[in-house]
């Protein structure tokens, strides 16, 4: 599903002393099937943005188009349920939304609300727990008896079982240890490719944006500050620093390397490839001296 924001603004608590314009005339397009990272500081508007993707918030001005569904300022959307079925959102710390007696019931909760049949729910549940690598014996257990990491996987399965076409991830790895983080992100990437999902990842991690996204949107003060491929974005180190954002470590390393006479351009090399290039330069006997 293509996603288009057309001059979207959103204001919290309009006409009160607490009035706050969180999105300010925001326009961008996300291609169907792409993996987009949305980056920005707390308060940059990214969390308001994602709530527009499944109609939790309705624009104060402008229009949001998600596939065939339109949300326009001042107009009631009659297909809200359809939209929510098609756009799965994994919120920050999604394990906080678990409530059923068993893991299986909790995973089936979403699809059931959208009127999916029992057999189909069973099938999807099985598929979802496999996708997140949860052992099937856990299905009968209470979600509250599981470890934190397992609970997160259950919550993610619950969203996957809705069988969405668009997957929105709001810092899905927050609070996990490095191992768990990588496992979860690899899992989402795999799903993205296998199912041809449109994935929107909200993250603070430049490393994740670099590793997984094919398009990056940098938000600042409710506007798109920069937009482009990871390589295009991370070349603009200064622009990112201006809004107090970092670049991936490899990029800042290469920038510093320039001061030491090692002039290498970052073109998406792996660490091993980079080591080869550096080794060549170093052994090559100081071509800059």
């Amino acid at each position: 599903m293509d996603i288009t924001f057309d001059h979207v603004s959103y204001t919290y608590q309009p006409n009160t002393p607490f009035e706050h314009r969180a999105l300010d005339d925001l326009s961008f397009t996300i291609q169907s099937g792409s993996f987009v990272a949305v980056i920005g500081h707390t308060g940059s508007g990214k969390s308001t943005l994602i709530q527009h993707l499944n109609g939790l918030l309705q624009p104060t001005e402008g229009q949001v188009q998600v596939g065939p569904y339109t949300m326009k300022a001042g107009e009631k959307n009659k297909q809200l349920m359809k939209l929510r079925e098609n756009v799965g959102v994994v919120f920050q710390y999604p394990e906080h939304q678990l409530f059923e007696e068993t893991v299986e019931k909790d995973i089936g909760f979403g699809p059931q609300n959208f009127g999916v049949g029992q057999d189909e729910i069973k099938r999807r549940t099985k598929e979802a727990v496999q996708a997140v690598k949860l052992p099937e014996e856990l299905l009968e257990r209470s979600p509250f008896d599981l470890s934190g990491g397992q609970m997160r996987r259950v919550a993610i399965s619950g969203v996957l079982a809705m069988d969405p076409e668009v997957l929105v991830l709001d810092e899905p790895t927050a609070g996990l240890d490095p191992n768990g983080r990588k496992e979860i992100m690899d899992m989402f990437y795999h799903l993205h490719q296998e199912k041809g999902l449109t994935t929107v990842l909200v993250t603070h991690s430049m490393e994740d944006a670099l590793a997984y996204a094919d398009h990056i949107i940098i938000m600042n003060q409710g506007k798109v500050y920069r937009e482009g491929t990871p390589l295009e974005i991370f070349k603009q180190q200064q622009a990112l620093e201006d809004v107090q954002l970092d670049v991936p470590e490899v990029v800042s390393f290469l920038k510093m390397a320039r001061d030491y006479g090692l002039d290498l351009e970052y073109e998406g090399q792996t660490i091993a490839e980079l080591a080869k290039e550096i080794a060549l330069k170093v052994k090559g006997g100081g071509d800059h001296e």
């Binding site: 929510r84 756009v87 919120f91 969203v159």
Partner: peptide, 9 residues
């Protein structure tokens, strides 16, 4: 909001 996203009305 999380539950509304899972289809609770």
């Amino acid at each position: 909001k999380a539950q509304a996203s899972r289809g609770v009305d």
